[in-house]
Each structure stands twice: as C-alpha cells, then as structure tokens.
Design a protein around this nucleic acid. Sequence first.
DNA 1: CTGGCTGCAAATCCTTTGCAAAGCC
DNA 2: GGCTTTGCAAAGGATTTGCAGCCAG
Lengths: 140, 140
Amino acid sequence: MDKYVSILKDRGITVTPQRIAVLSYLDSHRTHPDAETIYEDLKKDNPSLSKTTIYNTLDMLRQHSLIKVLTIGSKFRYDFNLLPHHHFRCQRCGAVIDIPPGNAPLDCMDTDGHRVDEIHVYLKGICKACLQKQKEENNG
Amino acid sequence: MDKYVSILKDRGITVTPQRIAVLSYLDSHRTHPDAETIYEDLKKDNPSLSKTTIYNTLDMLRQHSLIKVLTIGSKFRYDFNLLPHHHFRCQRCGAVIDIPPGNAPLDCMDTDGHRVDEIHVYLKGICKACLQKQKEENNG
DNA sequence: CTGGCTGCAAATCCTTTGCAAAGCC
DNA sequence: GGCTTTGCAAAGGATTTGCAGCCAG
C-alpha cells in the first residue's frame, strides 16, 4: 500500500487522489511552497484540480498535524517536515530555507552563509486568559 | 519639542500630523495592532484620515527602522518595541503578547502561563546565493 | 445510498497603486 | 513654488465561502 494512503488512513482521513497528490507533493518539495505553487504544479497532472481543493486539503492536513503552516511572509507557506527546525527567508529572492535548530543562542546560530538581518521568534498556542475561560466553560 | 517630532526630524523624515499620530499610537499601544486597528482608532481624532496614509506611514517607519513588522498571523502587525523579544500569539483570541528573550532553550522559556503549541523561529535577511549575485553585480 | 469531497464562481479580506488636491518647507 | 504627502477610488492578490454535482464507503 502506498505510503501516503497509509498516512491518511491511519488518521481516519478519507483517501482521495487529490489528498495523496498534495501530501506527496509536500513530501518531495521541501521548499515550503505556497498554495498557488502547489496548485500550478499539481494541475499539470490533474487539469481539473481546483484551488479550493488545495486549500481544503492543506487545512485538513494541518488539522491532523501532518504539515505545518508558515507565516513568514505575506502569504501562507506549507511544510511537510515536522522535525523542529528554523526558517530563513531571503528578502531578495523570497526563498525559504531550513536552518538546523541547535542549542546555541539565536544570534550565534549557524546560518550557512546567509546574512541574517532579523530574528523573529513566534510562539503559538492558547494564552493564559483563554485557558482560564476554557476551564470556566468546561466547569459551567 | 514633541518627542515624536524629534524622532522624525532626526531621521530627515518630513513631519506631518499623520506620521506623529501613527508613531505615537504605536508607542502607546504595545499590543502589535494591525493597520486596520490603527486606522479605526486614529480616525476617531482625525475623521479624514485614510488607510493609504496608514500603510504609507507604516512602510516609511519600517524603512527607517523605527518599527518592526510582524508576520505571525495572516495579516501584518506592527511593533514599536525594537528591543529583542519574542512574540506569542493566542490561537483563540488572536492577541499577540511579548515574551522576554532569555537565554534558555526555546522549549523551556518562560511563557508566563500561556500554553505553547507551536514554536516558529523565522530569520530574515539575504541568502548566500543572493549575496553572491549582489557581489557580482557590484563588480560588473 | 448518503455524507463527505470536489470544483466552479463569487465574495471577502488585506494591501497596493494611480492620481488629483492639499500641505510642508 | 516646487516637491512631497494625503486621501479617494479602484485594482490586485490571497484566501474563504456557497453551492451543485460527483465519489468513496
């Protein structure tokens, strides 16, 4: 059985050719593509593919923690790689490049020759106040 | 002379009421507002203010490194605080909260009771390949 | 069958652009 | 007065939504 079929089935996600295509695409294109790029590339093999399905599928994969969504630029980019790592975005060509995590302080981390102008650390989750609200809602 | 007038004049930026208003707003609202929020709030005191001016002004302040642009969500947010610090975004209420930098590894950092689900480290700058291209362009 | 998935089109949200009038020095 | 900035309107790009037909289980 195909690798991506198993990944989907294991999580109880309905298997469709489109979902396999997107998952497979992200696995083999570790360049953090945006929805448009994925769409244009997959359209070559499946001309009837729609962008809505790309968005639907990406959102579903994200909900199941199969991919990560990057907000490093003005549009969303998608990442199959779930191992912890950092991202470097070139302000000139727009490329998003993986940077190994390491334990060194951020300003000393190995950036493989890229010139770092800005360091952003974004944490996402649920804030203290919302955790409290959730607790009250569950008790109430 | 007003604090914000000096900040602008020192950098050779033409002083206008709108620019003072935006700068002053960001200094006193450390909640990382988006352009729409800044616009709606400042409109109360200056009904003829336009959103174009907000965008123009924010871009100009960014070019002069007077503010930082955050890409933590689907829209840009703006930060007056230039000292290094991290950002936490609540996925429930959307608030963006400052987190002190510290030297501890990221997964151990003090998050003041917020529940962290995702850690994103975004570096921005110029990649190795583009640095090389720039060098060639300057020599050629 | 039947609910969920797909794909088209239209809508929406955020941001940028073009341009005439007004403001700053 | 010349040059920049402002503000309106319209355009643009990315993402979401509504809905009819199709497909997997």
